[in-house]
Structures are given as structure tokens and as C-alpha cells.
């Protein structure tokens, strides 16, 4: 399965949730966003970030399919009829 085919199965968004060793919530936010951008996702945001002690628990999100878009999971050349 290709990456684009795999992404076509995502109903709406992909969340990446992790714990980052960092000095501040702002730093965690920047790292999380750069991680998503580095993976090739431009529509990125940080849903939650909480800094405590040595680092931050952070959840970053990228929307693969926003409402009103044309969804890969509805079928077509790449997506396949999975819905």
C-alpha cells in the first residue's frame, strides 16, 4: 500500500501524540509542528500541550480530509471504495 493510498483511508485527521524533552510549552509546540511539516503535512496544528518537569506531553494534528473536501475514502483512482 502506498502512502497516498494509506492516507486516503484517514477519515479526517492524523494526531501525533508524544512526550518531548524540552524547556517550555512553546518549544514543544514548535518541535511538534516542525515534526509534522517534516513528514510532509502542511495543514498542522497543536491540539494540546502541557509542560511539566522535564518536558511536555503534546498532541499535534494534521487534517488529511477537512469537511467539504473531496475524500479519498469515497473511492476513485487512488483511494479505493473503502467507505
Amino acid at each position: 500500500m502506498t502512502l497516498s493510498h494509506a492516507l486516503s483511508r484517514v477519515v479526517d485527521a492524523i494526531d501525533i501524540e508524544t512526550f518531548l524533552l524540552c524547556g517550555s510549552a512553546e518549544e514543544a509546540r514548535k518541535i511538534a509542528l516542525s515534526m509534522l511539516l517534516g513528514l510532509g503535512f502542511s495543514d498542522a496544528d497543536v491540539v494540546s500541550v502541557e509542560m511539566n518537569g522535564p518536558g511536555a506531553r503534546v498532541r499535534a494534528r494534521t487534517y488529511v480530509h477537512r469537511p467539504g473536501a473531496r475524500y479519498g475514502w469515497l473511492g476513485g483512482a487512488d483511494g479505493g471504495d473503502v467507505a
Partner: peptide, 10 residues
């Protein structure tokens, strides 16, 4: 409590 985008299925 997240207002940055649509609610997800997950």
C-alpha cells in the same frame, strides 16, 4: 475544548 479545527472521528 479544541477550537483550531473540526472535531475528528477519533
Amino acid at each position: 475544548a479544541y477550537s483550531g479545527g473540526p472535531i475528528t472521528a477519533a
